[in-house]
Design a protein around this nucleic acid. Structure first.
Lengths: 106, 106
DNA sequence: TGACCATGTATCGATCATCGACATATGGTC
DNA sequence: GACCATATGTCGATGATCGATACATGGTCA
């Protein structure tokens, strides 16, 4: 799973959101580092829906504009949990090796 | 940066290694989860060398077999550090949202 | 009035790291 | 003689992401 997909699932872990809302949430939770492109988001949502990680929630119309909401499925939540553990293990493994060769300054 | 590339840099953060040594080291540090394929490893090493993240270290011949060693450059070390921080931030962001909706059992 | 921006969903070709299979060679074991 | 571990390398296919584009609404600003 790549970063944009991970961030989409993370955004939905905070509750159902519509596409554009996911884009803004991902910008926020990545601290401005990642700006989701429409092409990435909507193809990812289609793929995640087909995989059962995400489900269509409801449609709303606000000010004449459609909002299509998505939510994380129990399956998607599990996938995100597994992925989170993986990322933490990777970070720890790298930190161990980086730290071993570079003694602390203080 | 994707997982195989990250693991290659992490393996080299422990000191210079030759290709096959990297494959075994990656298997170890990923706890058996990732087995690097030759196609992934050697194209990645070429790419990382061109990017300046990795450099050719030395060649050895052991039992009639060539060993081509690579090492992490200061640039590669910095890239790995940046990437590690990124992974940790991603994991933390996800854990916050996962935890918020699923109260602790104890 | 017209330009521009934020909101909102959607498609499509290009890019590029990885995958999977294959090639080639040596040395040891069964 | 077959097979496996060691060791480096190429090549076509796959697939998520990128970048551009399209289209529609409502608000602001000149």
């Amino acid at each position: 799973m790549r970063e944009p997909t991970f961030l989409i699932l993370t955004a939905l872990a905070g509750g159902p959101r519509h596409g554009y809302g996911i884009i803004r949430e991902v910008t926020t939770l990545s601290e401005g580092r990642v700006t989701l492109l429409p092409g990435t988001l909507y193809t990812a949502l289609d793929r995640l829906t087909a995989q059962g990680h995400v489900a269509h929630d409801r449609d709303e119309t606000v000010d004449g504009r459609l909002r299509r909401y998505y939510r994380l499925t129990p399956d998607g939540r599990r996938a995100l949990e597994v992925e989170t553990v993986r990322l933490r293990q990777l970070a720890t493994a790298a930190e161990t090796r980086l730290g071993a060769l570079r003694p602390r300054t203080a």
